[in-house]
Design a protein around this nucleic acid. Structure first.
Length: 561
RNA sequence: GCGCCCGUAGCUCAGAUUGGAUAGAGCGCCGGACUACGAAUCCGAAGGUCGGGGGUUCAAAUCCCUCCGGGCGCGCCA
């Protein structure tokens, strides 16, 4: 609807330009939805802007614009005002509003979709947790946001691919192996210190016990070197934890297109590559760009030559590559695979990583791509009005799985999505568990289920929704709600552009609230059959919008609660 | 010390990378509403120097400067 208004104004401005021979400006015509009703449904400041450019009075320009609006265009409005310094305020004709309901009905589950992305491929990388432990609430937030962003981008016409980068090799994996092995030894009475930066969680002992069940004491027997034993522990633990991670994400409703294994993709020798593996190829390229330097037995990326404050190590003294190095290779590979738009959803602690990664990609002469990083701030769990402390290394943290079992998937997703990702999030476990009006998820789902039960009632009375009498929808609430429903596609586009699903969460609460108010005030099914079928048609479109919106957030729409 | 994010009602937060008119919502608190489509709902009331101070502007929660408070980063961790 906003598009239509914009078009009408643009046409008028074009006519003015051609007639008065005005210099064309590329300035886009801004249409806003004013906060206050007396300023109409739509408002534009174009007259003020043009007046400045033409050194004319804004109100005169406004008048010219209004006078040149086509007849067809004028039918959209019941009133057009010039207000204040020269704003043009448009008041939409009620009939134009109600008639648009048919569009929602016609599009059904496609209502809200658009073709903003024009099929462009986008790679969204998210979660990417190390397989060294169970997922915690920070990962859950990352998963919820990454998945919702992917859904939304998909809805506005992007071709989205979801990837999880599996950091399944390197230092952290070694530490995991040692940690498990030490616990395994403990089971046989051998006491040795775990490395300081090892993993101390109870699940490490659980994994050690699994190994004991499978292998008995073989890993401490004569013929097996400690190194071999640790290697076995590492592989076993890695597989085991990855399996748990996959299970949690699956239970959460997040499906990845690809689990990108660092080991397999970046370190494995590839006959087609001259330089062995992908890491080697990158290394060679960086060398050719004169971006490398050997210092203190380590290999450094000369980031300071590419606009960074300091250089960074790519290969440690012991010959092992840093995370930074493999992440460069991973992003290089993403671009090589033809993705021009990359989105990474990272924890806020990765902030420092962004600019050096970009510097490395610059050094590799990669320019034809965009990388957007969505930084997710931390989640604080609140229980009994107190913060639940979390420490991953010590292993004392509430896992994603535990919380999901306690509050359910829908509640968890919604709570993690209802804040802007750059805000810290207080996850109130007590509130999340309550099945009442205080819980916004149920509030929205209840509106949905309620509409469903109205339809059951309608069926009993043999009434079915019809667009024949939409002109009977003339209550101010009805008009207002329809106007809001009509902004849905634009809202979805807005969420896509700003990569912020929380706006959708707010919108849905708003619509649900409008419905509940309406429901309490007005009978949908009454003795007047024509009005009843019109209202059924109307509330059905509310249901469509709620369903489509919740689906984008990955939240279910139960018919009964 | 430097960089990024945050500071808005008792609490948790919206207020686009485009400054606009009387700053919004949920929860909590207090008081009400089921003989009509589900009370997981609704109605009413109270609650604010938008962290402080300066500046730009006809107009600032929004832009600039500065100070204060909180979080994160500044690793041969990821």
């Amino acid at each position: 609807m906003k598009d239509e208004v914009q078009k009408v104004i643009a046409e008028s401005v074009d006519i003015l330009r051609s007639r008065n021979d005005l210099a064309p400006t590329s300035r886009e015509i801004e249409i806003t939805i004013p906060k206050r009703k007396e300023f109409g449904d739509f408002s534009t400041n174009i007259a003020i802007i043009l007046a400045n450019e033409l050194s004319k009075k804004p109100r005169e320009v406004a008048e010219l614009i209004i006078n040149n609006i086509s007849l067809e265009g004028k039918n959209l409005f019941k009133k057009i005002d010039i207000a204040g310094p020269g704003f043009i305020n448009f008041f939409i004709n009620e009939k134009a509003v109600t008639s648009r309901l048919t569009e929602i009905e016609r599009l059904g589950e496609n209502y809200g979709k658009s073709n903003l992305g024009m099929g462009e491929r986008v790679l969204v990388e998210f979660v990417s947790a190390n397989p060294t432990g169970y997922l915690h609430m920070g990962h859950a937030r990352n998963a919820a946001v990454g998945d919702a962003i992917s859904n939304i981008l998909n809805a506005v016409g992007f071709d989205v691919r979801r990837e999880f980068y599996v950091n399944d090799t390197g230092r952290q994996m070694e530490l995991l192996g040692v940690s498990v092995y030490r616990r395994y030894e403990e089971l046989f009475g051998i006491k040795k210190e775990l490395p300081e930066d090892g993993y101390f969680g109870e699940y490490i002992t659980d994994i050690a016990k699994e190994i004991r069940e499978k292998k008995g004491g073989k890993l401490i027997s004569e013929g097996v070197s400690e190194q071999e034993a640790m290697e076995y522990c590492k592989e076993h633990a890695k597989e085991r934890l990855l399996q748990e991670i996959k299970k949690d994400l699956n239970d959460f409703g997040v499906i990845f297109d690809y689990w990108y294994s660092e080991q397999n993709e970046l370190h494995k020798i590839r006959p087609e590559l001259k330089d062995g593996n992908r890491m080697g190829a990158i290394r060679k390229e960086l060398m050719q760009e004169d971006a490398l330097e050997e210092k203190d037995v380590a290999l450094w990326f000369k980031a300071s030559n590419f606009g960074e404050p300091q250089d960074w190590v790519l290969i440690r003294k012991d010959g092992s590559p840093t995370y930074f190095f493999s992440d460069i290779a991973y992003h290089y590979d993403k671009i090589q695979r033809g993705f021009k738009r990359l989105i990474d959803v990272w924890g806020a602690d990765h902030y420092g990583h962004i600019s050096r990664l970009l510097a490395a990609l610059r050094a590799l002469k990669l320019n034809d791509f965009s990388l957007e990083v969505v930084l997710i701030q931390f989640v604080r769990l609140i229980k009994d009005r107190q913060e639940v402390s979390m420490s991953k290394r010590a292993g004392s943290y509430l896992t994603m799985r535990e919380v999901m079992q306690e509050v359910g998937r829908d509640v968890m997703r919604f709570f993690l999505l209802m804040r802007s990702s750059e805000s810290h999030l207080d996850f109130d476990l007590d509130l999340a568990k309550r099945e009442s009006s205080e819980n916004p998820v149920y509030y929205i789902q209840y509106a949905y289920a309620r509409i469903g039960s109205v339809f059951e009632k309608a069926k009993e009375r043999e009434l079915s929704p019809s667009k024949e009498f939409l002109n009977l929808l003339n209550l101010p609430e009805e008009i207002d709600i329809i106007k809001k429903l009509l902004t849905f596609p634009e809202l979805v586009r807005d969420c896509a552009v700003s990569l912020s699903p929380h706006k959708l969460a707010f919108y849905l609460q708003d619509i649900a609230s409008d419905f509940h108010v309406y429901y309490n005030k007005s009978r949908i099914i009454s003795d007047a059959p024509e009005l009843s079928v019109a209202r059924l048609y109307f509330v059905n479109s509310i249901r469509t919008v709620i369903r489509n919106g919740l689906k984008l957030l990955g939240i279910s729409t139960p018919e009964r609660m």
